[in-house]
Every structure is written in structure tokens, then in C-alpha cells.
Amino acid sequence: MRHDELHDAKLHDLAKRLGAGAAERLDVERTAQMVLARLRAEPRVSVVARLWMQPAWLKIAALLVLLLGSGVVARRPWRAGAPGTATVIPVGEDLTGLSADQLREAIHSLDQPLAEEGAGSVDAGLEGLSADELRALLHALES
């Protein structure tokens, strides 16, 4: 037998002896009865409850994903449903296939949001204007 094999055999022998005393002292019958009692007493944990028992970081990550997800969902219909929203032409789209009329329509649709944005921006920051400035603004809007 080679020296290495002898050493391996000794290692295996040692490993087989590890924990043998502790295992012998285990009351197997009592353990079996305890396991049965716990199986009867503790109902199966639901998937939701099991998820909730995960470490705290997982809960925080899940909460963040939920918040972000619900934010995205909440924003989507508002944007899609906003009145007067201009048609968006993808930047990379090839325009060479469009006719003159289609191009005019596209240019018109690009102009639209700028005009609307200009009007819409009146709502923002009015509290900073003086009475005279407000009057002038109202007058400009009416004309």
C-alpha cells in the first residue's frame, strides 16, 4: 500500500468516527415521535409566508421592485391617455419611404407638442408673477 493510500485510509477512518458518539446518544425513537408531532402541529407554510420569512434584504428588494413596478404601471395609462399627445416618430426610423404628404403630417406632429408645451407651461410658476405680469399674461392668452 502506498503512503498516500495509507494516509487516505486513515483520514476516512477518522471521518467515520467523527460524530459517532453524538449520534449514538441521539434518542431516535423520541426524535421520530417529535417529528411526527411537529408535522401534525405545524401547518404547511404557504408560499407567501415562506417569502416573508426570507432575510430582510430580500423583503426590501421585493418591496422596491413592487414600488417601481406599480409606478411604471401607474404612469403608463396617464401618458398614453393624455389629450393632445403628439405622435412620436422614432429617431432611427427611415423617412425616405414617406410621401410628401406623410412628411408634412410628420413635421406638423413634431411642431404640435412644442406649441402645447408652451401653452401648458403657463400653469407652472404663476405664483412668482406680479399682478401686472399676470394681467399681461391673461391678455396675451385672450388675444
Binding site: 467523527l18 460524530g19 453524538a22 449520534a23 449514538e24 441521539l26 431516535v28 425513537e29 426524535t31 421520530a32
Partner: peptide
């Protein structure tokens, strides 16, 4: 449990 408890205990220890 009776069959495997001791082997498991030895492994865990």
C-alpha cells in the same frame, strides 16, 4: 426517521 436519523446526526456533528 428511525432509519436515517443517526447517519444524519453523525453528518451534522
Amino acid at each position: 426517521v428511525r432509519r436515517h436519523a443517526r447517519a444524519l446526526a453523525r453528518f451534522l456533528a
